[in-house]
Amino acid sequence: MTMIPHFLPPMKNIAIFLFEDFQILDATGPIAAFEIAERIAPGSYHLKVLSMEGGTVRSSSGITIDSAIADSSQSLDTLIVVGGKGSRQAMHDHESTAYLRARAENTRRLCSVCSGAFLLAAAGLLEGKRATTHWHRSEELQRLFPAIRVEADRIHIRDGTIWTSAGISAGIDLALALTAEDLGEAIAKRVAQQMVVYYRRPGGQSQFSALAELGSDATSFSSLFEYMRTHLSERLTVEQLAAHIAMSPRNFARAFVREVGISPAKAVERLRLEVARERVETSREPIEQIASSTGFNDPERMRRAFVRHFGQPPQALRRVYAQPNTAGSLRSKQHPFIK
């Protein structure tokens, strides 16, 4: 690997914070990214792994990682809190949350991967801030901590000194963004190249969203979901959907709600929102054309749906995602892999 000789700021201490039953990729993904950055630009990073008691910490897979005792007086530049199955218990550990509050006072960046956001939230560090977590737990995070502005579709979000990222592998996206801020995009792109990952991943979490899960779990309606996705420009009424699977409208509506958990109309709207948002963020296609082809028909109707679900209109999302340094699931106009 060719090193890049250039002036570097002082070495940054990066710490990964673990707890029992953590998700191992939440830790090892960022560790690998920072390790490669250090090899490309020697003297940039020093890595350490911390836990409240120190010693070996067991991941949910059974694999263990050695750690040092977390001490709020240690000099740290960045602390990354991992997620995983054990986050449900760790968020109620008062010593852990007290440590995170103390670290917030003397650490330049405090970050989370996946459900690590629950520990930051339990420590009171996300109140009034924008944050993300694994899409599967985003509703739970919003319910437990209503003062947080949860944006479930984002890959990572920066709000002040706090960075949160989405599920599991998004820890790599987070580490690349941190590296770009510290060492510049050229080095971060080299790290992505060595890891054979997207430098900026195309698409947000919506591509792995609850509707995708519903389409696979709700086996009675799997074919219907595919039909809905390919006919979004049509009205897709209950009668039309029921006829497609040879059911009466009343029985279909009841069975759909019972098995899927939402009404057919809500499911259609969420599918339309997913497809429309992806096209708003990744293309220059006129908003009116997107509204028509995804079944909203009226751009104002689509605008209201965007504001209701995403907190901002399509034009605002397009402006945000056009900015090259905006945190989140940025869309590259170039080939996603670095050559």
Score class of each variant (00 low, 15 high):
Gly204Trp: 04
Leu224Ser: 10
Ile4Ser: 04
Thr164Ala: 07
Lys339Trp: 11
Phe296Arg: 10
Ile36Val: 14
Ala267Lys: 02
Gln334Lys: 08
Arg143Val: 08
Ser67Thr: 15
Leu119Glu: 04
Ala180Trp: 01
Thr219Tyr: 08
Leu8Arg: 09
Arg108Asn: 06
Met3Val: 10
Gly261Pro: 06
Ser61Lys: 03
Ile65Val: 15
Gln142Thr: 06
Asp217Gln: 12
Pro264Asp: 14
Ser216Met: 12
Glu181Gly: 01
Pro42Leu: 15
Lys85Ser: 02
Ala166Pro: 13
Glu140Trp: 12
Ile31Thr: 11
Glu181Arg: 00
Val82Leu: 08
Asp298Gln: 13
Arg130Gly: 00
Gly295Ile: 13
Thr219Ala: 11
Leu79Glu: 02
Ser115Phe: 01
Leu8Tyr: 00
Ile36Thr: 08
Arg258Leu: 11
Ala37Gln: 06
Ser292Leu: 15
Phe296Ser: 03
Ile69Gly: 00
Arg331Phe: 14
Ala104Asn: 14
Gly124His: 02
Glu185Trp: 03
Pro9Leu: 05
Ala180Pro: 09
Ile338Arg: 03
Ile162Gln: 15
Met228Trp: 06
Thr282Asp: 05
Arg331Gln: 11
Arg319Phe: 07
Leu174Lys: 05
Arg279Trp: 11
Glu151Met: 13
Asp159Pro: 14
Ser44Asp: 02
Ser51Pro: 03
Leu47Asp: 09
Leu141Asn: 12
Arg279Ala: 12
Ala212Leu: 05
Asp71His: 06
Ser51Trp: 05
Leu183Thr: 00
Ala175Arg: 07
Tyr199Asp: 09
Asp21Ile: 07
Tyr45Lys: 07
Ser233Arg: 14
Gly328Tyr: 01
Val150Phe: 13
Gly184Cys: 09
Ala210Glu: 12
Ile80Pro: 02
Ile168Phe: 03
Ile148Trp: 14
Glu20Ile: 00
Arg250Val: 15
Ala117Asn: 06
Arg279Lys: 10
Asp21His: 12
Glu20Ser: 04
Ala255Asp: 10
Gly55Met: 01
Val49Ile: 15
Arg318Leu: 03
Arg331Asp: 09
Gly29Tyr: 05
Arg270Asp: 08
Ala255Val: 00
Thr294Ala: 15
Ala152Tyr: 06
Arg303Cys: 03
Thr164Asn: 13
Arg101Asp: 02
Arg88Met: 09
Ile290Lys: 09
Ser138Asp: 10
Gln240Val: 13
Ile14Glu: 04
Thr282Asn: 04
Ser329Cys: 07
Ser72Glu: 11
Leu224Cys: 12
Leu241Met: 15
Leu18Phe: 07
Pro286Trp: 08
Asp77Asn: 05
Glu259Lys: 07
Gln289Ile: 01
Glu105Cys: 01
Gly160Arg: 09
Ala265Gln: 08
Ile338Met: 03
Glu226Ala: 12
Tyr198Trp: 12
Phe34Arg: 09
Ala255Ser: 13
